Computed example of a mutant assay.
Amino acid sequence: MSTDTTATNQEKKGAVELTLAMVLSGTLGVFVIESGASPFNVVFFRCLFGTVALGLYCLVRGFFKNHGFTAKKLGLAALGGAFIVFNWAFLFKSYEGTSISVATVVYHTQPFYVMLLGSLLFRDKLTATKFGWLGVAFVGLILVAGVSASDLTGSGDSSYVAGLGYALLAAVFYAVSTLITKRVTGVRPHLVALVQLVLGIFLLLPFTALSETKGLGADWGWLVGLGVIHTCVMYVLMYSSYQKLPTPKIAVLAFVYPAVAMLMDWAVYGHSVSLLQALGIPLIVAASLGINLGWSFKGRTAEPTPAAPAAGTVTARAAGAKVEINSGGTR
């Protein structure tokens, strides 16, 4: 089999893996709501069951040998993990005030906070084109949010505004985690994610009401699913696909996640976005792709920025090329 054919087959395999991972991500909200647990309880048990499943996977694959961690890298991974686990808690909290659809789309303004914080904290270059895409995303966000004047004056639905706030806060925490964790190089993303999950167990324990779990019954299955399916299986699929796919395909396929999330929200709970909100979605999608793929308003394509469908980036090598892939996961 020729080298070109092998590369093509690998890319197809990567596309299938990432699509499956994003489909799983899209069902996350349903698992969270159906579990009947509070957001902090959900994240605690996601970390607990995810640690067991992902830890066993890493053990079987021999990833603990020559792990590549130093004290500095371990500290950075842990610091990024602190932001990522609270990012999950705020995202899940946002479902209560808004809906899975609205919270997910608002949450997908993450790349722009990464861009802004990177410019402020690390002096990353912020061009006029990037500012332009930021403006497009902001208009889309206003439309998707669907906040009325009464909501802001207090005579409307304050829980809806709070839900939007939690989704935005989750996105900012994602951005901080990404900027921190992307500096952890030379370590398998599975191990970085495992560090973050273990840390999450201890960080969230004070916020977890274990007494509430007595009446969960069969709903424990949803929590186990969040740890095994939406953490271990999803991460394994994502990290495998990132090594096989070019940045443009990763950036495009990442939007399977919000599409499936909106479909599930409609199919399971009957929630749908209004026409005005729907007009904002393609603006956010276009702006995100524009930033990730280096689109220019003048028709020229700049150097693309690696896509970040999950929080925290680490560096891996695939086919001799340096590829940024993500660890930690935001779903």
Rank of each mutant, 00 (worst) to 15 (best):
P306M: 12
Y242L: 15
L237T: 07
M238T: 10
S272Y: 14
I284W: 01
A259T: 15
F255M: 07
K322Q: 11
Y242M: 15
L253K: 05
P248K: 10
Q277R: 11
L237M: 13
F255D: 00
V252Y: 12
G270H: 11
Y269E: 04
V268N: 04
Y242D: 00
I284Y: 02
Y235L: 13
A267K: 11
E303M: 11
W295A: 13
L279R: 05
S272P: 04
S296K: 14
T305M: 10
H271Y: 07
L253V: 08
A302N: 13
I250G: 01
A321I: 07
A311Q: 05
T247F: 00
S241W: 03
S288L: 04
F255N: 02
M264S: 08
L245G: 05
S288N: 14
A308F: 07
S274W: 11
K249R: 15
V285G: 03
T313G: 12
S288D: 03
L283H: 03
A267V: 15
G280K: 03
L279D: 03
A302D: 09
G294H: 09
V273T: 07
A254T: 02
V268W: 10
L253R: 00
Q243M: 11
Y257S: 02
M262L: 11
L275D: 07
A267S: 11
L276Y: 10
V260W: 00
M234N: 06
Y242S: 05
A319V: 00
A286L: 15
A319C: 05
P246R: 13
Q243N: 10
A308C: 12
I250A: 08
M264D: 03
A286M: 12
R300A: 12
R317N: 13
R300D: 12
I281L: 13
A321L: 12
A287F: 06
P248E: 09
P246M: 00
K322L: 08
P306F: 08
A318S: 15
V256T: 07
K298I: 07
V273G: 00
V256Q: 04
D265T: 04
A278S: 15
A302P: 02
S272V: 14
L289W: 07
L279S: 08
G290A: 11
L263N: 05
Y257K: 04
A308K: 04
R317E: 11
M264H: 00
L279P: 00
G312Y: 03
I250L: 14
Y239V: 09
E303L: 12
L293A: 02
A311R: 05
A259D: 02
E303V: 12
P304C: 10
L289R: 06
Y257Q: 12
S296E: 09
L263Q: 07
V236C: 13
Y269M: 12
L263V: 15
I250E: 00
K244Y: 06
R300I: 05
V285E: 01
A321R: 15
E303A: 14
T315L: 14
M262H: 02
K298S: 14
G299L: 11
A278Y: 07
P248V: 06
T315W: 11
G290P: 02
N292E: 10
L293E: 06
S272H: 14
A254C: 10
Y239I: 04
L275I: 13
A251T: 01
E303W: 01
Y269H: 13
A307S: 13
M262D: 02
